[in-house]
Structures are given as structure tokens and as C-alpha cells.
Design a protein around this nucleic acid. Structure first.
Lengths: 254, 254
DNA sequence: AACGCTATTCGATAATGTCGAACGACGAAA
DNA sequence: TTTCGTCGTTCGACATTATCGAATAGCGTT
């Protein structure tokens, strides 16, 4: 891999992403401290980004925040995330049928990205938002995708992330997770039973492209008590059927 | 105004924005031709952007497209567009009441940006999408905002844009537009009567912030025939009431 | 009025981005 | 198979230019 990367662009990217990882509003000083750059360097980069609409300055406290140009670019990307347009109506139908929130997550550059979320009528709000990354080891979507990757890919992904423990049910042992993936593959779906948040249960199924590779996953998330013996089979069937339908619409010959 | 802008960042921005203005997929050669830069220069910038997830390369034809990182940043910006969260439920109610599509547009750096769109049940799809820019002179949202800006600001904005003529009803004379703004201010709402597209009619009303400055506008868009003498007053009242409610929720003391 | 804080400007210097040319990979045409 | 042409990528030399530290300006508080 060549390494002829342009510093100032990387620094600009560092600054933009700093707003996501720290705070939506930052001062020049805060940025320069976080990135170990001089204030004047940061100032130059910031003014360039502001000039282009990637940042904007609050006239009151002189702090900066991400600009409207990023909103425009981001929505343009969302428009051309083809799987999204295909999946949306199918997901909407599923939400109407199950009365629970459904998420669509795609695998992009070894990361899981939420790209669609249709909320059910219940007031339960899950910690998720479009554009955010999801962990692999403690979500239904993550595990359902891992289950259909090659062992090499699973090893690569799991070795680069920290297997953070969210609840007492979170699996943090790579070997344990890998064994778990076998049963997921046999079932054709994955569950998350309070592994990322107490009281939250998810059912997820993988989505495949025309080459048969897993590229995404949808999941139904609900309070554990609502996914009981009676409703669970119905939810599993619904999620599996919807995932298959999306896969087929993308070109999967299953 | 200082002019100490960083070239490579501006070039990176040029490249990103080129995807919006030309095509969602571009090759190195196409980019270098559009921007009058050498292939190697473009290549260096592109590889840096790709490394950070702002671009991604299609392995088949080696062309590049905008990357998922922009999707993430854009959605983060959308989350903190506070007016959006406040307006959304009010707009949804209005759509349910009017059965027509409603747009929310904000004024950002002298540009009109669509930030929310709730479609009515009718199949009519209007040429608009979130993140896109709207013209000032031939839309209800544009004119309703201009009507509440100072004459200085109106002059500045109208002098920097081209008053493109979309239909035979488009106003392209600055003086005519400025006189028209007076009556809009008297009425408290603006209409667009086939000024941007034949058969399309809009009713729009301005939204004010806590300082009483106009910052946004909502509009109801429908086929002209559906906004007849009978329904028009109802739509006008609905739009005006919703705009006022949003303004008050933002902090406007009207 | 003086202080502390931060954003902003400025000038010198060294770092680094840019260009043209060459290479390599691929597909089409002969 | 060979040849040609195209395009993405790499490389080295040079001059542009981004960077830093110091100085300035602007603001609010003591």
C-alpha cells in the first residue's frame, strides 16, 4: 500500500471527525489541544473548511460546528446507497406487521453503519441513529453478518475492535463468539439478548448481494418482555422473510 | 477578509463537490480534466480521501464515488439542525391535515437548503431532495424569506444569484421581485404559482428565531388544480399556523 | 485600567504538495 | 499472439506553500 497521503487533508478530516467523537461545538483551542497542532495551523484549516461550508462559526461564542455542506454531501451519499431505497418499503411493511422498530445496517469497510431506521409505534427509543457505527460482538446485526463471513475476515474484524462489555451478557471471548456464529449460521438468524443493553432484545437476519456475499443486516429491536414465547417465532419469521426479500431484490439468487 | 486558505483542502472540497455537480461516479481522468489538475495530483488527493472514507473506489471499473464517512458526518449535522427536530412533528401533523407534501427549508450562508420533506399521500413527486438548494426568486419558501430580510440583504442575495427563468411565470426582474416582497410581508405568506414548474403551486410562510430574524420557511406544494378557491384558504391558514408554531417553539416571541 | 483569555494575523523557514514523465495493467484491434 | 492505446498508479526534483512561534486584536472580568 502506497503512503503518499496529503497531510493537510488528513488534518482537515481529523478536525471534522473530532466533532463526532467529542462535541458538536469546539473552539480553536480545543481542537488544537486534541490534535496537538498549533492554534495557527488549526485556524488556517478551519477557515478553509468554513469558507467551503464544511464548518460554520457561531458568532456568539466564536466556536465552530460542522457545516451544512456536509449535510448536503451526506444526503447525496444516502440517496445513492442503493440498498437503502430497495429495503425501505420492505422494512416499512415489516414495521407495520410487527409494530416494532426495525434497523438496517450495512457493512462498509469493515464497519457496521446504520443506514435506515423505521420506528414502531412504541415509545421505546433505542440508542441508535442513522450514520452511527454498531459493534459487531453484541448486536444481532453484527453477529448475523459475522456468521456469514469467512473465518479470516471474522478474525481480522474481531482483532481490530475492542470487545467492550456492555452488560453481564456481553460475550467478550473471541473463541466463544466464533462458536456462537456456527449456530447462527444453522438457524439463519441472530439474536441479541440483553448483550448491549439490559432489557433490550433483538432479532436479526443477514442480507446477501448477487454474489452471495453478506453485505447488510436488518434487525427488530424491542423490550425483552415483548419478545416472549408467543411473539418471538412470528418476529423471527418476519425478519428472515424480509431479509430474504431484500436480498432477492438486490440480485441474490437464493 | 483574510485569504490564507489551504489549497489542498480546497482542492479536496472541489473534488467532493464535483460528484454532486456532475456524476455520482467519476474516474481520475474525469476529475483531473474538470478541475484542470494533473492526474497525479488528483490521485494523491483521492487516495487520501479514500483512506479516510470520504471516497470509495469501485473495484470493477476503478471509478470513485463519495464514501460512507460523508454519510456519517451529514447525518450528524442533520441531528443537530435543531430546527429540524422541532419542526418535524408539527409538519407531520400539517401533512395529515392537508394531505399534501410539505417542505422545510432553512437559510444557511445565503443559501436555501431543504432540510425536511414530508410527503403527502398523493403520488406527485416534486423535484426536491433533502440537502438540495432551492432558488430564491421562484419559490414560495425563497420569497417568504426574502420578504423578511433587510433590503441590503435582499440586494446582496439577488445580486449573487442568476435569476434563471424556469417557466413563463418566473419573475426575473429584481425590481419586480422586490415590489412583490412588499405584498408578501403584508399577507404573511408567499405563493409560487407555476413559477418554477408548470402545474405546480406552493404556499409558504416564514419561520423566525428568538431574535425575530427569519431563518427558515415551510411550504405546501401541490398540483395547481388541487389548490383551488375552496382549499386555498385552508392551506394558507394551515401553513401560517404551523410556521408560527415552529417559530414559537424555537423561541420567537410573536 | 489592567489582566487573562482566545481568536486571529504575520513572516521566515523547512517541509511537502505538485507536476511531468515513466511504468504497469488491461482491453481492443490486427 | 502481438501491438497499440488508454487509464490508474508511481517516482523524483523542484518550487510552492503549509507550518510554527511570536505578536496583535478583541472581549469580558476583576
Amino acid at each position: 500500500m502506497s503512503e503518499r497521503l496529503i497531510q493537510s487533508i488528513e488534518r482537515a478530516a481529523d478536525i471534522l471527525e473530532l466533532f463526532i467523537s467529542t462535541s458538536p461545538e469546539l473552539s480553536v483551542k480545543e481542537i488544537s489541544q486534541h490534535l496537538n497542532l498549533s492554534k495557527s495551523t488549526v485556524h488556517g484549516i478551519i477557515k478553509t473548511l468554513e469558507h467551503r461550508g464544511y464548518l460554520q462559526q457561531n458568532p456568539d461564542d466564536l466556536k465552530y460546528k460542522l457545516g451544512i455542506k456536509l449535510f448536503e454531501l451526506g444526503n447525496f451519499v444516502g440517496k445513492y446507497l442503493d440498498i437503502r431505497g430497495i429495503a425501505r418499503p420492505i422494512i416499512s411493511n415489516l414495521v407495520a406487521e410487527l409494530n416494532e422498530t426495525v434497523h438496517l445496517v450495512t457493512l462498509q469497510r469493515d464497519e457496521l453503519v446504520y443506514v435506515e431506521k423505521v420506528e414502531g409505534p412504541s415509545a421505546l427509543t433505542i440508542y441508535s441513529h442513522i450514520g452511527k457505527r454498531a459493534p459487531f460482538h453484541c448486536t444481532g446485526v453484527g453477529k448475523s453478518i459475522l456468521a456469514y463471513l469467512s473465518e479470516k475476515e471474522v478474525d481480522r474484524i474481531l482483532s481490530t475492535v475492542v470487545l467492550k462489555s456492555f452488560t453481564e451478557f456481553t460475550m467478550t471471548d473471541i473463541q466463544e463468539i466464533k462458536e456462537h456464529l456456527i449456530s447462527i449460521r444453522e438457524q439463519g438468524f441472530a439474536t441479541d439478548d440483553e448483550e448491549i443493553e439490559l432489557g433490550l432484545k433483538c432479532v436479526a437476519a443477514p442480507i446477501f448481494n448477487h454474489q452471495g456475499n453478506v453485505i447488510a443486516s436488518i434487525s427488530c429491536a424491542a423490550p425483552k418482555m415483548r419478545l416472549d414465547e408467543e411473539r418471538l417465532p412470528k418476529v423471527i419469521e418476519g425478519i428472515k422473510a424480509a431479509a430474504l426479500e431484500i436480498s432477492k431484490n438486490i440480485g441474490y439468487k437464493g
